[in-house]
Structures are given as C-alpha cells and as structure tokens.
C-alpha cells in the first residue's frame, strides 16, 4: 500500500531524514507549475501587445496586484489555519473612511497611517473575538462583518466621498522609490519576505500548519489554538489596513464602494497560489507567483481592451478550476491504478 512497515527486519532502523531533496520536491511542486504559467503569460502578453514590455507599463501592471497580494499573504495564513475572512474588502472601506474622516479633522499623514492600521487591527480583533470567543464559523461571522464594516462606511459617507488627502500621503500609493520601482512594489516585496519567514521559518508558522491540519490534534499537543487563530485574524485585519492606506493614497479619495468585491480576488489569489481551501497546506512563494499571474493576466486583458467584468468570469473559472482539476486528475489516476 504505502511505504509503511517495510518489514525488512534490521534494515528499517536507520531512518534517513529526507526521502527527496528539496530540489526534487520543488520539481513536482505547484509553485513550479505556477512559475511556468507566469512565464507563459508574460511571453504571451509581450507578443500580444507591443506596449507590454515598456518598463513603465510593467511598473503600472504591478499596481493590479500589490495591494491585494498584501492581504493575500495574511489571508493565506488564515486559510492554512482552517479559517477564512470575507470581510477584508470591507475593512479597507472602513479604514479608508476612518482616514478620510480624520483628514476632515485636519490630521496629517503619520496620524492617518496610524488610523488606517488601527482600524484594520480593530476590525481583525472583532472578527477574531467572535470566531474564537464564541466558537462561531468564520464564514458566517465575516459575511456579517463584511456587511457591517462597509455598512458603517455607507452610514458615514452615503453617496459622498472624502478627498483632500495631504500631498505627503500620496507617496504610499503613487510614490516611486527608484526609477520605475514603486513604493507599493517595494512594500509588497518586503511583506512577501516577512510573511514567508513567519510561515516557513518560525514556531508560529508551524503552529498555523498544525492547527489547519488537525485543530483537535493541535489542542492535544499543547497548542493554544484560539490564540493562534486570533492572531491570524488580527494580522489579516492589519494587512487590510495597510492595503487601505495604499489604495486610498493611490486613489486620493474614499468612497464607501472602495475595493468592492476584492475579497473574492484575494481568496482566488490564495487558492491559485496552492493554498488548500480546507486548510493545512500552502506556501507564501506560491501566493506571490499567483499574484504575479493574476496581475499580468488582468493587465494583458486590459491591453486587449477586455472589460473588467469579463475578467471576473476568468477569475471565477480559475477559482473553481484550480480546485477541481487536481481532484479530477487524482480520480483519473486512482481509476487507472484500480
């Protein structure tokens, strides 16, 4: 059946650490497949449009995914742990509204940043409290807070908008660090590294995997499951706050409909990145590549003048196909064996 119990007597005593080297594992990984897809999309795009390879165009293309990817990193951890947060786009709306309100009160950039991050943290804490404190299913809780958070924005703003952000605030969404390298892209890259380290190199990251694979087993192994989950909701809220700062800065205005429907794109990015929607497995490099793929596909469609809503069909199909195809393939293989 499996590699278990070889029953070859004494030979079994010395167990090697690894069966396959990390390189061998990489060669059969989802990440490599994604990388191939990314290269293909890149090549296709450069053939499809002569404008694609222009450095400034490429730089613009990154704005299609950097903000969503920042949330996707945290969402990836959350989904690996077996929970989900559908309120992220609404947290952006609320954080952006809070910042807009502060602008009207005369707040300056440092205060705005604090307010954006603080609102994100508060929203994340609220979600985390409801899920871990009462043991409620995160899907329902965050469908509820999704309405609530954006609802508050609507109450505050109605059909109006906040504008008049200070010019120094524009740097987060519009500034460039060097030549075509935007601040957002640098932030995205830094956060990718930070999250990769958290997930893959720390005890906390290990706990995230354990909780997602087997929450009961985690509890029985002395992991304080509620604390881990609460921290992840907090982190997801915080990253939504960061995205709110970048997006608000980039748009220069706050409307209650800001970032509408982003939760779907973030979840799709995470799932495309190879994170199991049921929890337990996934990697940050996968999410990073998925972000590039989605960003470039969106940009490519844009260059071909395909409207945004048609792209959403593509995203929806992608979301289902990415989960369905491995299952179909698995069944075909199992069928052949039998």
């Amino acid at each position: 059946m499996s590699l278990a119990t070889p029953d070859t007597g004494a030979q079994g005593r010395q167990i090697p650490d690894r069966l396959k080297s990390p390189l061998q594992r990489f060669l059969v990984s989802w990440e490599l497949l994604l990388l191939v897809v990314a290269v293909a999309v890149f090549t296709l795009n450069s053939f499809a449009s002569p404008y694609f390879l222009d450095p400034w165009n490429l730089s613009d293309a990154t704005f299609n995914f950097t903000e969503k990817a920042m949330i996707a990193f945290a969402m990836g951890l959350l989904i690996i742990s077996g929970e989900i947060d559908l309120s992220v786009a609404s947290i952006i709306a609320l954080a952006s509204t809070a910042m807009g309100f502060a602008v009207q009160m005369g707040a300056d950039t440092p205060v705005l940043v604090m307010i954006g991050l603080g609102t994100g943290l508060l929203c994340g804490a609220f979600n985390g409290f409801l899920v871990t404190g009462f043991g409620l299913p995160s899907i329902v809780v965050t469908i509820g807070t999704m309405s609530l958070f954006r609802g508050i924005s609507y109450i505050v703003l109605g059909d109006k908008a906040y504008t008049g952000y200070p010019s120094s605030f524009a740097f987060f969404g519009q500034g460039y660090v060097w030549w075509v390298i935007s601040f957002e892209f640098v932030l995205f890259a830094l956060l990718a590294i930070v999250f990769a380290v958290i997930l893959h190199k720390t005890n906390f990251g290990r706990a995230v995997y354990v909780v997602g694979n087997n929450p009961v087993g985690a509890l029985f192994s002395g992991i304080r499951v509620p604390r881990v989950k609460f921290a992840l909701f907090l982190l997801t809220g915080l990253m939504s706050g960061v995205a709110a700062i970048c997006l608000t800065s980039r748009l220069g205005a706050t409307r209650p409909s800001i970032a509408f429907g982003w939760e779907l794109e973030v979840v799709t990015m995470v799932v495309l990145g190879g994170v199991n929607i049921l929890g337990g497995s996934g990697s940050i490099p996968g999410v990073v590549i998925a972000a590039f793929v989605m960003g470039m596909v969106t940009f490519g469609f844009g260059l071909l003048n395909v409207p945004g809503i048609v792209m959403s069909i593509f995203i929806g199909l992608l979301l289902i196909a990415v989960i369905a195809l491995p299952r179909i393939a698995g069944r075909v293989i199992a069928h052949r064996k039998a």
Partner: peptide, 24 residues
C-alpha cells in the same frame, strides 16, 4: 531521529507524512 530510533519506528524517511504510516 533520537526518539524514533528508540521506539524502533519503521518508516521510509523522517520527512514522510505521518498519515502514510501504519497505525502501529
């Protein structure tokens, strides 16, 4: 390595998924 050796564990490698092992 130390503890699985003491228990005479039979497995292909230490990075094998525990789910692939027999109950014992």
């Amino acid at each position: 390595r130390d503890y699985t050796q003491r228990l005479d564990l039979r497995a292909a490698a230490l990075d094998q998924d525990i789910g692939e092992l027999s109950g014992g």
